[in-house]
């Protein structure tokens, strides 16, 4: 099977077969990460550009390492402040970089749909590294790879994402990906941070964490953005930690072999207590490793195959 697409914009429109292919390819890519010589020549001569309109050391580094391990050349561009009327337009930035020979763009942008815009603007490949509150497909896939490695499959698994669901592209990508693969997805967060009509999707929605965590196989803890407090979404950090923070005691409600995940960076002591973050159930550093593997797999599947949909 091949990946018949030019771009990776989200998990919403992906088939279970495609997700399965990516995860399988990621597993074998991980093999390379464990070797003394972390370099394969497959993408020699390919040019990958990470174009980031939002800061993210973690995601950017992960993509760059993945590209470099596969011998692609990488260029990073950070656009500080994505405001309009300043500097070059997004469209012109994309067209200029494409004209310089970029084969694949990795794009992080604060605006939902920015990756779609890029995919429609350039003929090069585009991987969405997070667009606004919309999707973060590579985070979704690395979370899924981590679950797959630990649980062997997805069917019937109960996966809880807890925190600021409304503003979370990670929650959305996890929901699409996991529900397609047969897992039961639960969302839990303050009612002010649950997006409108989310309950119409295939997800169980909770505002009581102890109810939500009952019997789950995976708890994926989302980062709470402290600036949300100033916008009136929740009253205080301590109240949030009390009502929604994941601590050892709370974790007892989950299955005895529960996995604890976090997309990072963590606010230790707020959404997750340090003993849980560093505890026996946490697979947070595995997620980071799997992030590189998933990104290698996507680069390979998009750039490494003449039979794939070519960047025309």
């Amino acid at each position: 099977m091949q990946l018949q697409r030019k771009d990776i914009l989200g998990l919403q429109d992906m088939t279970p077969e495609e997700i399965g292919l990516i995860l399988e390819t990621a597993k074998s890519s991980k093999d390379i990460l464990a070797r003394p010589v972390k370099k394969v020549p497959i993408l020699r001569g390919k040019s990958v550009c990470t174009l980031f309109y939002e800061n993210s050391t973690r995601t950017r580094t992960s993509f760059e390492l993945a590209a470099k391990i596969m011998s692609a050349d990488t260029t990073s561009i950070s656009v500080a402040g994505s405001s309009i009327n300043k500097g070059e337009s997004y469209k012109d930035t994309l067209l200029t970089l494409e004209a310089m020979g970029v084969d694949l763009f990795v794009i992080r942008h604060g605006a939902g749909g920015a990756a779609h815009f890029a995919a429609n603007t350039v003929k090069s490949h585009v991987i969405n590294a997070g667009d606004g509150m919309h999707e973060h497909p590579t985070q979704g896939l690395l979370d899924m790879l981590t679950i797959l490695e630990n649980k062997g499959g997805f069917d019937g698994l109960k996966v809880l994402l807890v925190g600021d669901i409304m503003h979370s592209r990670v929650a959305r990508s996890n929901l699409w990906g996991l529900s397609k693969m047969g897992a039961e997805v639960r969302f839990c967060g303050p009612s002010t941070l649950l997006p409108s009509e989310i309950d119409k999707l295939s997800v169980k929605v909770y505002t009581d964490i102890d109810e939500a965590i009952d019997g789950v196989d995976v708890v994926n803890v989302l980062r709470i953005q402290l600036e949300r407090m100033n916008k009136g979404f929740f009253p205080s950090v301590s109240e949030y930690a009390n009502l929604f923070g994941i601590n050892k005691n709370r974790l007892r409600g989950a299955k005895s072999d529960v996995l604890v995940m976090h997309p990072g960076p963590m606010n230790r002591g707020i959404e997750i207590t340090p003993d849980v973050a560093d505890g026996e159930f946490a697979v947070i550093t595995d997620q980071v490793t799997n992030g590189v593997a998933v990104r290698m797999a996507l680069l390979y599947l998009l750039l490494g195959g003449g039979g794939n949909v070519a960047a025309a």
């Binding site: 606004g132 509150m133 919309h134 592209r169 997006p195 409108s196 009509e197 989310i198 119409k200």
Partner: peptide, 15 residues
């Protein structure tokens, strides 16, 4: 418009 489509597109909702 705030609602399911907006939630799915990850855009800021206009109630």
């Amino acid at each position: 418009n705030e609602g399911l489509t907006c939630t799915m597109l990850g855009l800021r909702p206009w109630p």
